[in-house]
Structures are given as structure tokens and as C-alpha cells.
Design a protein around this nucleic acid. Structure first.
Lengths: 100, 100
DNA sequence: TGAACATATGAATAATTGTTCATATGTTAA
DNA sequence: TTAACATATGAACAATTATTCATATGTTCA
């Protein structure tokens, strides 16, 4: 007997939509991109993207709340990095679609 | 000599963000879910989700514009189906993250 | 302790967007 | 052609959200 693929609970679907919303902003995507190879501090990211520290900080919080990035404290700076490999994979899969 | 992973053009990143925005709405996710197994007409989807035909139609247009669904005409009805396997994969990958 | 720096937070604003209602277009069958 | 049905579209409203500015918190070092 085969197990049927059941539609996820509405609750889960809302969570899923919220997750994709996080990927649906170019600033956040750019931030995540800077973290593809290496961790970076808020200031470094702001400089790389040529944006306000405040903007970056706000968006990093969104990313962190959604467990897409994690932090490491070192002195005055806080270094951010991608939380797991999922993040990269989701972005790369989306990129495949855009580029084809 | 190693080729470096270059950061995508800003233009591409905007497109990518737009793509994820499309996934970032629970109604659209629900619509795509109804299409996981089978094609469906606008009316069928509206009934399955218990929503206005108009809402469904508007959202299907968004999905179609972004090449996530395609159509097949049959008499008065228009049947929608997922455009390619990418769609399912992106959703399933997101689901992995949400469920872990 | 206080000065200098790094990051975070809150409020306000501007822009984007999902849904609804009303109406239009398109298709079939009589 | 007309009636009945299926889908699409446009305008309007409400809600969400990204950014900025101003300010707060937290850390280091003298």
C-alpha cells in the first residue's frame, strides 16, 4: 500500500511562505551572498554592499530570526555566517530557475 | 588556475528576489500544492481552497508570469499544471528547512 | 571611569501587494 | 444570435514591509 503525499497543514504552509518571504528581498539575498564563502561582520557587509549599517543590522535580524544565519562574537564585532547548507541550496536552486 | 564563484549581477539578484517573492505567499503555495499531483481548473482550485475565483485567477497569473505554472485549454475550462520539476523541488527544500 | 567604536532598536515614511467587488472577455450549446 | 458558464482584468482598500534617522546598548582600552 502506498502512502499518499498529503497536503501540509495550513500552519506549516504559512511558515513556509514566511520562509520564502525572507528570501524574497534583494538586500537579504545580497547579504547571504556575501556569506557564501566567509563570515563577515555587520560593518564589513555594510561596506561591501555600500549600505547603511542600520539597514544591514535590521535585515540580519530577520535572517537570524529565521535561522538562516548565525553569529560569533569577537570583541566589539559580531561575525555572521550562514546557518547551514540549506540556505545555499535554496538560493542556488532558485538561481537555476532564473537563469534557465 | 581556479575559477572564483562570482557574485551574481545585481540585476540577476533582483530577479531571484522576485522569484522567491512568488513563493512567499501562502495562497500561491496552496495553489501550487493542489497542482503537485494533478492539473486543475481555476474553478476546481477555488473550490478546493474555498476561495474566490477572482483571487485564484489573479494569483495564477502571477504564477504563470513567473513560469511556475502552465496552462492547457479544454472547452470553457483552463487547466493549470506545474511548469517544471523545479517548482516542486524548491518548495520541498523550503519545507525541509521549516520542518527541521 | 570615560571615550571611541560596533551593533541594535524604535518610530516614521514610502512603497508594495493580496483580496474583493464589479465588470469584461471568451467559450459552448441551444 | 442569445443564455449560461468559466476565467480574466481593473480599481480600490487594507495590510505588510524595507529603509532612514535618531538613539540606545554593549564592548574595548586607556
Amino acid at each position: 500500500m502506498e502512502k499518499e503525499n498529503s497536503i501540509p497543514e495550513l500552519e506549516i504552509l504559512f511558515e513556509l511562505a514566511d520562509l520564502f518571504k525572507v528570501f524574497g528581498d534583494s538586500t537579504r539575498l545580497r547579504i547571504m551572498y556575501t556569506l557564501f564563502e566567509d563570515e563577515h561582520s555587520v560593518g564589513e557587509i555594510a561596506q561591501l554592499l555600500n549600505m547603511e549599517h542600520s539597514t544591514i543590522s535590521h535585515q540580519l535580524r530577520v535572517l537570524r530570526t529565521n535561522k538562516l544565519v548565525k553569529i560569533r562574537r569577537e570583541g566589539k564585532q559580531i561575525y555572521y555566517s550562514l546557518d547551514d547548507d540549506h540556505v545555499k541550496k535554496v538560493i542556488e536552486m532558485g538561481l537555476d530557475h532564473v537563469l534557465e
